[in-house]
Design a protein around this nucleic acid. Structure first.
Lengths: 88, 88
DNA sequence: TTGATATATTCTTAAATAGTTATATGTTCA
DNA sequence: TGAACATATAACTATTTAAGAATATATCAA
């Protein structure tokens, strides 16, 4: 029960939803995500760490860049579900 | 985006998930929910108010009792989705 | 009415955490 | 090597909020 709640809590932050939206099509570097979301680099980095640790995002280092992408497709589906529900 | 996040945030509390679990089959009174969850009456009452205000629960008064039930079936489906995902 | 029961609300405290700033670590290239 | 760039982390502040305690409100029954 606690783990389900933790999962939802991670999706309960607008900034993290923005991040998910940014990487949902294809993996992006931290810098790309920073510019896409308009948040500070430190802030984005922390959110990314949380999402990756929870198994929602993948993390892949390439040179000096780090690519984050969707690992748990469920998270995206959940967002779409809620979005379509709210659209009604 | 903010409203999607708010929706998820509501599901991001173990106590509220317990409440949803308690009322997901049939509406229950506050007292029933209190005993089922083991929380205090004040605490349950506050969570119920939040869930009802968000349109996730219905609220129906009958005499001195108040029945809360599922209004937004999506919330239950989301919980089931995450639950089954975590079960893997 | 009075007392018992059911629910809601107010006030307070404690804990969690999002965001900022500054700095550290790591990588590439000249 | 050193400078520029990319990412992560640490320390701090401020905000949110869950929970508890006490009380208020409402309903029923004798």
């Amino acid at each position: 029960m606690e783990s389900i709640a933790r999962h939802f809590r991670l999706l309960g932050e607008p900034m993290r939803l923005k991040i998910l939206q940014t990487v949902c099509k294809t993996p992006r570097t931290v810098t790309e995500i920073v510019t896409a979301t308009g948040a500070t680099q430190a802030n984005v980095s922390k959110h990314l760490a949380l999402l990756a640790m929870a198994g929602i995002l993948t993390r892949e280092k390439d040179g000096q860049c780090v690519y984050y992408g969707i690992k748990d497709q469920l998270a995206v589906r959940l967002c779409e579900l809620v979005r379509s529900q709210l659209a009604e």
